[in-house]
Design a binder for these strands. Structure first.
Lengths: 203, 203, 203, 203
DNA sequence: AATGAATGAGGCTTCATTCAT
DNA sequence: GATGAATGAAGCCTCATTCAT
């Protein structure tokens, strides 16, 4: 009988190795052999677990967004107060990045760069930024809507504001990636929170 | 001296052709022959004007950010009122994108994706997002600082807020690129303006 | 202005180089670099003229069978006498191989080996042995039929005999390929002619 | 000594599995894992019985030709009459293929394709078509010679006719493989017999 | 003895760049 | 100056074979 290998665990190991290298060098510049080396295996071995580089790319996408989604759901589920929800949302995003050193965020650049392109690409079934962000924005819009209904928030255009919030979070993340030193992500998130809430709260 | 001007003009022609194709297909997927075809010249001719693909990439970067910088300087220079300056800033950014169909923005994805990486890369001397954004943020911070000094704005953390503003603009742009249909960039810029100003204005 | 190259001529050059190497090493064992070397060009250059190895394979097939078909048509068209037609047919086939050293025949082995397989293969649109031989056999059957009608041949089963004749020719060719020394193709073709005609001629 | 027999049996099992897959997909396209799967064993297990894929190929060759030789010997040994011998020869060949569905014949394409190549290959010590067919042709030549001596056959060139007969049989087989539906192998073998015998019999 | 996980040599193909015309 | 034909480095992937269990 042969070695017993937890196929699922090893696949995940490779995925994480890939994510790391992707973050460092970018998806395009990452060669299969780089991933293999990072994972401490031979390049041929990768193909025992993944059919192609593209498939790894797709799985990395899922890894990131499933993770993100889960974090968000958790952050929002803790409370029923729209104000609290927004706070949690922003904080979770910020903390998440601080802790993961933005590795995944760095990869997201590649998803964007890739996902933004030609709609006819096969990858778009997998890397569907449109869908991901739609859901994300809807989530926030709901919160805002809730807040307005309960009189906590002013009567703003919820969809625009949701887009802004999402954009601001992503944008802040970008800024932080570009230069961790000049940005205090924690402070930024607080200011964002204060300013925004200040701007929409019914005083 | 009849050729000197030609040279420069043709170089710019190639650059614009490159920018267009970069926007459509992404930098990595763009082949030299694509640029040549778009510019209506032979593949080899490009090398009479550019030493390499990388050099074109670098020049495209400059094209975009020089242009952007110029727009911003103009927008800010029109008035001395910090409030107006912010308004112009946001509007110019939004309009700029609407008019150029976000072509340049799409390329910026590639700059980010590239520029975000390993600091030891040669390209980073040219594609210096850190520098570009630093200046950009400093510009805004100055405005905010001014506003606070003149009592128009509350006493917020200017650097954080500058980062947020820059981030929010970039983020909104991303959202718009991902799906032009679900975002009304004009409305978003207005809401952003309202909310932010509302949040920081001394009532 | 660049070098002037007769694209069509060079494509044919590559094709012949490929055919030669195919004959020597077999299609599967032939590497693109082998063809390139034989053609005296770099391996990348092949792709300026052919999209893939498979395409070269397909063109080689056409090269062989178009050539063969033409030879046969010529051989048959020279006369109206069924007996003469058969004679020409056999002689042309034999001579053709003698002159071309059976290079193409050697490649046909690979077509057979390949073409005989799974009917669902894409290649079968190109390497359609069934079709090629059907036409060939039909051609012969017609001659036989003619001969019977005019009382030159006995009343044999024309389709079976056509199959035999085609088979015998191919088979003789195989034998000759396997060992040129032990077979005198000219004598064999004469004996085949004599025996067969003796077998079917009316007295 | 309980394992000795097992070893041999299992080796044969693998060989038959290989032969089956070879026939279906062709030798080159057959992967070791295909053979293993067909044999119902693990991929690594094959190497307990065979040193390499090539060795399996060689053994398959022997399997086929030993079998064929045996059949022929049997067919010829039944009678002393040259005419009967030829009849048996042709019938056995035809029937053999009908019964085995031409599986082995399909593999022979690969032997030919392989065996026809460069004489310096190591495999040629094993896959020696030249030798195999020499013996085969000699066998037939002897029969013909016998027939001529006893006055049953005309005075033909025995070696040429032997080559033709062998070729015709192989060729008919090829035709049948290419398209079983349009060829009635039984009828063909009869026609072949009639025509040939008619051509050489002393009436 | 049996297995399948691991491997890397090797093949096909792409494309930035060179260069002869 | 302009061109596109030529090129080979480099990357993805396959698969026969090895080997630890």
């Amino acid at each position: 009988m042969p070695k017993k290998v937890d196929k699922k665990a090893k696949k995940l190991e490779i995925l994480h190795a890939a994510a790391k290298v992707f973050a460092e060098k970018g998806v395009v510049k990452t060669k299969m052999v780089d991933i293999a080396t990072e994972a401490g295996i031979g390049k041929g071995t990768i193909y025992e677990y993944y059919r192609s580089k593209e498939e790894i790319f797709a799985d990395t996408f899922r890894l990131i967004f499933d993770n993100m989604e889960q974090q968000l759901a958790e952050a929002i589920g803790k409370t029923d107060d729209p104000l609290e929800k927004l706070k949690n949302l922003i904080q979770v995003t910020a903390i998440e990045f601080l802790e993961h050193s933005g590795d995944l965020a760095r990869i997201m650049m590649d998803f964007w760069a890739e996902g933004v392109r030609s709609k006819n690409d096969e990858l778009l079934n997998i890397i569907n930024l449109e869908l991901v962000y739609s859901e994300y924005k809807l989530l926030i819009a709901d919160i805002l809507h809730d807040g307005i209904k309960t009189g906590v928030f002013k009567n703003v255009d919820v969809h625009s504001l949701a887009a802004i919030l999402v954009g601001a979070l992503d944008g802040a993340m970008l800024q932080w990636i570009i230069n961790k030193d000049t940005i205090d992500l924690k402070k930024v998130s607080e200011v964002l929170l204060d300013t925004l809430l200040n701007g929409i709260k019914v005083k």
